[in-house]
Design a protein around this nucleic acid. Structure first.
Lengths: 210, 210
DNA sequence: GCGTAAACGTGCACGCAGTGCAATAATTCA
DNA sequence: TGAATTATTGCACTGCGTGCACGTTTACGC
């Protein structure tokens, strides 16, 4: 009889959160966003509506599976350490997938969520918000590296920082496109391939611009 | 005694919308987002709360000054006609500024809004939503042009379309960066210069990537 | 095991955003 | 001026989200 690492409390908590997330996704798919009320979700997950807000800040967060944690500074550092020496684009795309990875892999819900977002673009707002925060963290993490990268040598610091932002936008666009392609083709391709594809998209596009 | 082009009704309507927008922006700046209630905004603008929703779909829309109209297909076509022959990046950036132009120029509120958004990132969500719609329209408008552009000759159509998306993302990042730079420096620089700057940012970044 | 402290779940009351409906008032146009 | 159109408003109602207080469950040292 082996006791699991995390205590009972934490296990129960994770379970409840899972129930809430799946209830939210399921009900939205079944009844549409407006008819999937908090009450309904909570009833399906068997918690009080009051308790719901111990887990999520809003209905949307539960549907999208957004957690407070998201990215810690340590996980970011770990990701960075994993990719030392890669060139800027590769590094950036890899970091993005590193961040996305958990939510894509650990969950059968991912594709349901993509479907939901396509059906209810209102949710894009909240999602973009999250993306923005992630991008900011990435930008902050990458900035010092690029400042000392050969590509950006002999360059004004302020100018470099602006370029970093622009490059982030470029890479996130490619990442989005690659993931979209992957999802619509219903591929079972491993994430690594999608990652590679995103990098390729950046290179192809850049090549065409000049 | 000259009668103005639009009838009394339309003038009043425009006036009321203006009052609501300025009241919303002013109150948010004064009291913060959460304390600027609908009631307060409507009282300041001297309309009933029920009437508010004849003008905007949500409180956020009033604060951000988002209108239903946004971009019509004709205005888009006009913009396109203005920039025939430009290369892809130039074309894209110009179109973006063409769309942004009205909201930046026609309003003392623009900088207030930037301040508000910085103070209350929650609003970014709604804004990103709008941006997304704009970007989609732009993508649709530009796609056929790029398909037949020399840069994308001898290329799979699907692949070209993906590249268009990525390029759009690149250009919107540069646009955002350029506008931000312009706003923070408190510059009175003409929009044309900002536009040029955005294009420059694209070129510089691309050059560095390879 | 036992008792205490901390974390969690819950009910209740409340405020604010947003919508449908039906009555009223203002604008337009013939 | 009178009829048609459109805007404004009040009212009632739903749903989301929060603060608070209270009871219950889990953790932890002894």
């Amino acid at each position: 009889m082996q006791t699991s690492q995390p205590g009972l409390r934490e296990r129960k908590r994770a379970e409840t959160r899972d129930r809430l997330e799946t209830a939210a996704v399921t009900l939205v798919l079944k009844n549409g966003l407006e008819h999937a009320t908090l009450d309904a979700i909570c009833e399906a997950a068997d918690v009080s509506t009051r308790t719901f807000f111990n887990y999520f800040d809003s209905k949307e967060d539960a549907i999208l599976g957004l957690r407070d944690s998201a990215i810690t500074d340590e996980s970011m550092a770990a990701l960075l350490a994993d990719h030392e020496g890669a060139d800027p684009v590769e590094l950036t795309v890899r970091l993005m997938f590193g961040v996305l990875n958990p939510s894509i892999n650990s969950s059968t819900l991912f594709k349901s969520r993509m479907k939901i977002v396509k059906l209810h673009p209102q949710l894009l707002g909240r999602m973009a918000n999250q993306m923005q925060r992630m991008t900011e963290q990435l930008t902050n993490a990458i900035r010092p590296i690029l400042r000392s990268a050969p590509e950006f040598a002999n360059e004004d610091v302020a100018e470099t920082d602006l370029s970093v932002e622009v490059m982030l936008s470029l890479c996130s666009g490619a990442t989005r496109a690659a993931v979209k392609e992957w999802a619509t083709k219903g591929n079972q391709a491993p994430l690594a391939a999608v990652e590679q594809r995103a990098i390729e998209l950046v290179r192809n596009t850049v090549k065409r611009i000049k």
